[in-house]
Design a protein around this nucleic acid. Structure first.
Lengths: 231, 231
DNA sequence: CGACTAATTGAGTCGCTTCAATAAGCGTGG
DNA sequence: CCACGCTTATTGAAGCGACTCAATTAGTCG
């Protein structure tokens, strides 16, 4: 039995169908840094993340990279009507994904109306997150970006726990400094300086490279620049 | 007979249904600057743009604004499962929109499977555009942003003509300089300087405030920083 | 413990912004 | 139809936030 089934998009598939399609899927292990889907390539699979965290990224012709999404357990990767993928999907940590061939995926969309609705709902949420990403990148200062990032990741890490819970105050960062920079449209040095400044201000602790603890969530929220009523 | 029906999402509705639902819709005229949907308010309508151009925007607590999408004729505004809207939708030009109550819209989703698929397809395209927006805002320089913007708008204006056609070389900008700045994450002065530089370089002409002519599309493409094989 | 990689910190530069002044469109009314 | 006045855009000069380049420190893993 799959660890994320209760929360993943699979809940929209009838039990009978699920067993039937279960045959076509396989569970795959990804090592940190491994790329599941390449930007520009024809998509021939769809996947549900069982464990670990992945990034979705786009690059420019000279290699600059922007992370356009972070994918957590129970989240979904891929799209129907298998076109060229506009993004790469790469494991930020070792990960387990449940992979289906594109054909099975497209078929599901026609045979299970609930599946389409669930997928639409998921896509609309991802669209909202991406739009907030545009706001962050277009209009927020470096401190605001870091504050927003910490709040977002603490919430999503909490949600994607085996037992979903509220935003975590202490957690391991699945991204290194370069990846945080690629997500926030900054450089590695600016990320580092801002984190140090927040530590100095008593907003966070940094017990290790990848470990982070939020000490003053309220002040992070104010620092983020967002309308407070949104959270 | 509606001017954009042949291209809009309505094509996914059976003729019988279309007439039935047609009763519930109304055509509305928006003046330039008028807001159809407010950020944070509960959504009670869905709309198809018949004529004119709208912006989708999000703001920060101190009023800074980011445009996260531009909506052209035959495009769609709204979402099912009517939640709070995360964006405002405001007319950039005088516009005509075909408006449906949220209830009729949600019903369509259950009664017409093709409608759901079409909506999903539309949402996936919007997601791709928004992700490219993140790339632009996070990693492109001011000249690259302007070049990308000019190419994008010329293509979308062409597509949304009554008779859809290739990218236009000469067109009216539906956005003023401030709105271009809010879309590209720049200031009005930077937008103006970059446009002047491009005019000086012979890439474009600017016969009037709002009129723009592309003289060297190929060079704009190279300036945009994107992978050339993408367009 | 030692070596390698990742992160931090510092100094200087640059691109975009800010603030301020000028110019150009464009609609209006004489 | 042109002149006027208002709005929008352009241009200039100075400032600053984030970047670049370089050196140092701190984790982490064998």
């Amino acid at each position: 039995m799959c660890a994320v089934r209760a929360r993943a998009i699979c809940t929209a598939i009838s039990p009978t169908m699920r067993d039937q399609y279960g045959q076509e899927g396989r569970t795959d292990t990804l090592r940190k840094g491994q790329t599941l889907v390449w930007e520009g390539e024809y998509l021939h699979l769809a996947a549900i993340v069982v464990a670990g965290v992945l990034k979705l990224s786009i690059s420019l012709s000279d290699g600059r990279e922007q992370i356009v999404g972070v994918v957590y357990p129970a989240d979904f990767i891929g799209r129907p009507f298998g076109d060229r993928s506009q993004v790469s999907a790469t494991a930020l940590t070792d990960a387990q994904v449940c992979i289906f061939p594109q054909t099975a995926f497209d078929r599901l969309l026609f045979e299970q109306p609930d599946f389409g609705r669930r997928l639409l709902e998921h896509t609309l949420e991802e669209l909202n997150r991406t739009r907030r990403g545009m706001l962050l990148l277009g209009r927020k200062s470096a401190p605001e970006r870091i504050a927003s990032f910490l709040l977002e990741i603490s919430r999503r890490l909490g949600e994607s726990q085996p037992q979903p819970q509220a935003a975590l105050d202490s957690f391991e960062l699945p991204l290194d400094r370069q990846q945080i920079a690629d997500l926030l449209g900054l450089t590695i040095e600016t990320v580092s300086r801002q984190l140090s400044a927040m530590r100095a201000a008593g907003l966070i602790r940094l017990p290790g490279r990848r470990t982070l603890e939020i000490l003053d969530r309220r002040q992070l929220l104010e620092l983020s620049g967002d309308h407070l009523e949104n959270l």
